[in-house]
Design a protein around this nucleic acid. Sequence first.
DNA 1: ACCTGAACACCGTTCAAGT
DNA 2: ACCTGAACACCGTTCAAGT
Lengths: 227, 227
Amino acid sequence: MATREQRSQRRTDGLTRERIVETAVALLDSAGARGLTFKALTERLATGPGAIYWHVPNKDALLAAATEAVVSTALAAGTTAAAPREQVREVALGLFDAIDEHPWLAAQLTAELSRNPRGAVTPRIYDSFGRRVRALGVPESGWFTATSALVHYVLGAAGQNAANAVAADHEVDRDEFLDSVSNAWEALDPDDFPFARAVADQLRGHDDRRQFLDGLDFVLTGIAAGR
Amino acid sequence: MATREQRSQRRTDGLTRERIVETAVALLDSAGARGLTFKALTERLATGPGAIYWHVPNKDALLAAATEAVVSTALAAGTTAAAPREQVREVALGLFDAIDEHPWLAAQLTAELSRNPRGAVTPRIYDSFGRRVRALGVPESGWFTATSALVHYVLGAAGQNAANAVAADHEVDRDEFLDSVSNAWEALDPDDFPFARAVADQLRGHDDRRQFLDGLDFVLTGIAAGR
DNA sequence: ACCTGAACACCGTTCAAGT
DNA sequence: ACCTGAACACCGTTCAAGT
């Protein structure tokens, strides 16, 4: 049932930087950082490597562009809550979910923040958190430190969570996987690893998102205490 | 002035797993994750790739072994302070410094914690922090959450700091570099980035180690509040 | 201006052959 | 048991040649 081509329809199969970046994101999502190769890219885009290099200077720049595209949409949502503390939670959860959906994002964001602090991504992330930190009533001298702590916690926790999710993905069943890790921790030498043994049972069935928010609350409480 | 070979001197040029791992760490330290190649490895060890594969199954396993070696020495130091909160700071600083010296370590640790939670590294890290969390007086139900928050903050903050240090290393002068970033933030659109602009000056001459400890204190204060 | 695709230097890994 | 080194499949990047 082929419909007639609309006359106004633009050619959409032209190679553009945007299409390349979209395809890169799709490859990264489905196969991880190792899945983004020029071979896979040229196959999906039905072109040759030279064509891609005409739009993008190299692979690192492509990764940076993919990072910017994903992080922009994640932060564009904005916040709905009134209380600044709740707003920080919304921003943090937005990044947590973006990193969960795009597990390669955490490492790329760390790279982007360090390699390109004058770019758009770094101030956008700092502004997303920092505006709400100001609203929390933190004195001006503490703005940078408090915001950095939030950014670092979010990237660390979300990055670890995403890596865990990818690893658990190779397992048959999440509960079964956590159970086996828990059993392994319980079997550790009680003299060498008293804590891991004692805490092994808490691994079972724990909620990653909940744990992320609980950790965020520690940071927020600490920030509020120095207010 | 060649000295006579001592009779008791053992052959030390035999290829061992230990020597391979040591060399891998040296290569990672001097040239980053991209600097660890089998070519560089075989040149330094004056051997062929097949010899290395006899001792180590593949590159991922070599990276895991390098991670374990470095993290073990970093955590072996133990703590000297009496107060548990101060002990947590010591453990965190030990990891911070190890990641600062070995900037590749943060990403590898995240990978190791997720891919190999039944290995030795994961419970060792959790125990290092968790024993002190218990000593802080946190109720048992909160042990896993509090310890995870600490681990995630430390890895996130230390990882970002190490990445920043590597990036700044390419610059002539740290103060000059921070100054130029600060200037770039001050030149941002005040409507789009009010916070980055306002905080730009705090970038100049800030102390990374101090900022790391301040962030750690936020987490610790938050944990103590839920006690 | 934009794309093709062969070519290059490099990468991790394997394996038959040696000692 | 341990090592050699050629060979393989793959990688990012370049560039002369096309349209």
